[in-house]
Nucleic acid binder design. Structure first.
Lengths: 142, 142
DNA sequence: GTTGCCATTTACGTTAACGTCAATACAACC
DNA sequence: GGTTGTATTGACGTTAACGTAAATGGCAAC
């Protein structure tokens, strides 16, 4: 079964990024091109790598660092030996999940703020931003 | 009405950032300290600036650039002259809202992915006896 | 065989968002 | 007056995530 491969410009155009970016991702271990017998020879990527790239770009749009992204994406391809490592990975996954949920919450708040502002704005009652203070129960971290 | 003011270290400790960061934010116009008659004199910030800082940090956690954040935070304090500018601001606000909603969606997808993975991971059959057999000493990598 | 045309390597440049350090200023306390 | 403590100003350093440019190599067409 010969797998469909993608050239670097294929991917670059498809995802609207530069080839340099892709090479950089490979350089830092986020992507892997198929083995080239000789160097100085064009790179090709499998569909699997294409999917990785997609995940990477999603992560970027969400404001994660490449380092963070690497750890998360690697999660999908790990297969842990032994109970201890499994436990460790599970814990890591849960931490990430918690972070994501927090981000969603904060985005919802931001959205609410903007909507509130938009509303006021429409009603021509231009607010003196005192009212926008987000007084949350917990503390300062909102 | 004497307003409560905050020193730079006040804010730095309260929000767990460096004073340098706060000065930097002021440097790039994200914050404004109360007018100091003389230079070389400590900065103080109003509650209003404190709220701005809070918004800025929220933006940062969400992966926005300081430039983006500045534009959004400024929104809260604009009061537009004339219909044209009002229209412009409204449009900008709506664009931001759309972006935010997209981010939320993508985060939900990411969350779903991770949950799916977590699930598979949990259901993975681990044979009792072999699970303990962690091939530790100088084995091979698979 | 040489002319284009890509792709690769190597390497130096760039920007954002601070960190860090040294010199200076001011204020309080001894 | 000297010391201690804290802030302010430059000013240079740093890291991540690429951009960009120059030299090189492969290959197909002419």
């Amino acid at each position: 079964m010969k797998e469909r491969l993608y050239s670097i410009t294929d991917l670059a155009e498809r995802f609207d990024i530069s080839t340099r970016t892709i090479r950089y991702y490979e350089e830092v271990g986020l992507l892997t091109s198929v083995d080239r017998d000789t160097p100085n020879h064009p790179r090709f990527y499998t569909q699997r790598e294409r999917r990785r790239l997609k995940l990477i770009l999603r992560g970027k749009r969400l404001g994660f660092s490449l380092q963070d992204i690497k750890e998360m994406v690697d999660l999908y391809e790990m297969n842990p030996k032994g109970v201890i490592e499994k436990e460790r990975i599970l814990q890591f996954t849960d931490e990430r999940l918690k972070e994501i949920e927090e981000k969603i919450d904060q985005l919802e708040m931001l959205k609410a703020d903007l909507l509130l502002h938009r509303d006021r704005f429409l009603k021509e009652v231009i607010p003196d931003s005192e009212a926008i203070d987000t007084v949350r129960k917990g503390g300062e971290q909102s």
